[in-house]
C-alpha cells in the first residue's frame, strides 16, 4: 500500500523577479496501490510542482512530505537515490529521451530486465513497435511522448508520476494510453499519479484532486 502525505505545505517560486506563492498550507493524502490519481488544474496552478515535490526535486519551505515512509524533508542523497530507484518514477513534461539511443534502449534505461515480448506487446499497443530501433530525433512528438510513458511505467516501482502524459497526443492515442495505464495499474498494483488539465482523462481516474486558490481539493 502506497501512502503519500503532504502536510500544510507552503511553497513559493520566483517568476519574473517576483515571488509567487504556489501552495499555502496545502494538504494532500493519497493511499492506495492500484489507483489512477488525477491532479487536475489549469496551467500554472502547480500540478507539476506537486509531482516534483513527490519526486524529491522541489522541497516546500514549510510543511512535511512523507512518501511510503520516506520523510522527504530530511532525505539525504543516498536515500533519495534509493527512493528513486525502488519507489518512484516520473515522466517529465518535456519527456526527455537520450538522442543517440534507440526507443527500445531508452525504455530499457529504466529497467533492463523487462521481458522483450511484453515490451513489444506494449509498444504495439501504443503503435510504436515499428519505431523500436529508431532514435527519438526521427520520431514525431507524439511518438516520443508514448516512448517516454512506456519508459516511466516499465520501471519496477510502486508509484509512477506522469506530467501531462497526453499533451502531445491526438484523441486516438490519448485514450489508448489511458487504457494501457489503467490496465497496467490494476495488473501491476501500481499507483499512477497524472498531472493534467485535460478533462477527457477524468473518466479513467479513481481519485481526482483539483488545485484551486493555492490549495489541493479532493473532488472524487
Amino acid at each position: 500500500m502506497n501512502k503519500i502525505q503532504l502536510n500544510n505545505i507552503t511553497l513559493t517560486r520566483k517568476q519574473y523577479k517576483e515571488k509567487l506563492t504556489i501552495f499555502e498550507n496545502a494538504n494532500l493524502e493519497v493511499i492506495g496501490k492500484d489507483k489512477i490519481i488525477l491532479i487536475y488544474g489549469p496551467s500554472g496552478s502547480g500540478k507539476s510542482t506537486i509531482l516534483n515535490i513527490i519526486f524529491g526535486i522541489l522541497y516546500p519551505e514549510y510543511g512535511d512530505v512523507y512518501i511510503n515512509g520516506y520523510n522527504m524533508n530530511k532525505i539525504n542523497a543516498d536515500l533519495l537515490s534509493k527512493y528513486r530507484s525502488n519507489v518512484i518514477s516520473l515522466m517529465f513534461q518535456n519527456f526527455p529521451l537520450v538522442g543517440w539511443l534507440t526507443c527500445k534502449e531508452n525504455i530499457l534505461l529504466s529497467n533492463k530486465n523487462i521481458n522483450k515480448d511484453y515490451l513489444y506487446q506494449k509498444l504495439k499497443q501504443l503503435d510504436i513497435l515499428n519505431a523500436k530501433n529508431t532514435t527519438p530525433n526521427k520520431l514525431s512528438i507524439g511518438q516520443k511522448q508514448r516512448v517516454a510513458i512506456l519508459q516511466s511505467i516499465m520501471k519496477n516501482v510502486n508509484i509512477t508520476l506522469l506530467d501531462e502524459p497526453t499533451s502531445a497526443l491526438g484523441h486516438k492515442y490519448k485514450f489508448e494510453v489511458m487504457k494501457l495505464l489503467k490496465e497496467y495499474s490494476k495488473k501491476n498494483e501500481r499507483m499512477i499519479i497524472i498531472a493534467t488539465h485535460d478533462n477527457d482523462l477524468k473518466q479513467y481516474a479513481d481519485v481526482i484532486y483539483k488545485l484551486k486558490d493555492k490549495k489541493i481539493y479532493k473532488s472524487l
Partner: peptide, 14 residues
C-alpha cells in the same frame, strides 16, 4: 548531460 540527468532521475547516484 541529458543522458546523465535521466540516469540521475532513475535513481543512479552521481
Amino acid at each position: 548531460k541529458k543522458e546523465f540527468a535521466i540516469y540521475y532521475s532513475n535513481g543512479i547516484k552521481i
